[in-house]
Design a protein around this nucleic acid. Structure first.
Lengths: 126, 126
DNA sequence: CCAGTACATTGATGTATGTCGATATGCCAC
DNA sequence: GTGGCATATCGACATACATCAATGTACTGG
């Protein structure tokens, strides 16, 4: 029932705005939005994304907030669990990286028009 | 108590993936995402948007869910309070309409690429 | 004015969430 | 191995949220 007609649907308006979301689709995307629906996590995402190499270690992120280290760790875990952030451990440090596919999944809701190859480009460009 | 200025405060802010979001920008946009971060409300948004004339009366929406009428009313109120849905009463019925500016504010976060004239078209074309 | 319909508000209840301090784990240097 | 640093997990707490049944409000038709 969710027949996405990419070009037209996206050209005029977003899937959210054109096609009634199925119960399953809504329940699939809502957790991603929920993870993003917190000021701290929003800033974490943008900090990681804006960091050089599109990755950031926790120590950098901790300093950007007035919150305790466990709290930041908790928020990073939430973002990681829904797939918005990837986690890599190198030595003592843990680096988080934005998962472009997960972001694209949310962005598609709002009719983001992306070049087909763009989503995978950052991963390959590393 | 709810002192957020939903759409205006956020319409200018930078995309999530390029510039680190300021504390204020994050706190401005998070309530919109929070309102959307629920499967029922996501479906409500898409149902209203997909309805003819881009507006729907509560009676139509109630029937699309297995939830009680007060619960749907509550979700509509949440979406209305952050500015994502506009409310109009005509006779006995109440009609909800998507506010394209509010949706655009969220979409901008994800770097939505829209045709230049398109963003203002829905608002103006009404 | 009365009854009925459409929608909102209230009050209650269980669950989820954000935050912290304390503690655990894992890595490194000596 | 010991001590120290980076990060995660745990337990506790207060607050917020989704949901419902009951009730309130506002409009309509007779």
């Amino acid at each position: 029932m969710l027949d996405l007609t990419p070009v037209e649907a996206v050209a005029c308006c977003s899937p959210l705005m054109s096609t009634p979301l199925s119960k399953e689709a809504a329940e699939g995307i809502a957790p991603l939005l929920k993870a993003l629906a917190d000021p701290v996590r929003l800033r974490l995402m943008s900090l990681v994304a804006a960091h050089e190499n599109a990755e950031a270690c926790v120590c950098d992120l901790n300093d950007a907030f007035d919150l305790s280290q466990p709290t930041i760790s908790h928020h990073l875990k939430v973002l990681h669990e829904v797939g918005l952030l990837d986690r890599t451990k190198r030595g003592t440090w843990v680096y988080y990286r934005v998962n472009p596919d997960a972001v694209a999944a949310v962005a598609n809701l709002f009719g983001v028009v992306r070049a087909a190859g763009e989503a995978s480009a950052p991963a390959g460009a590393r």
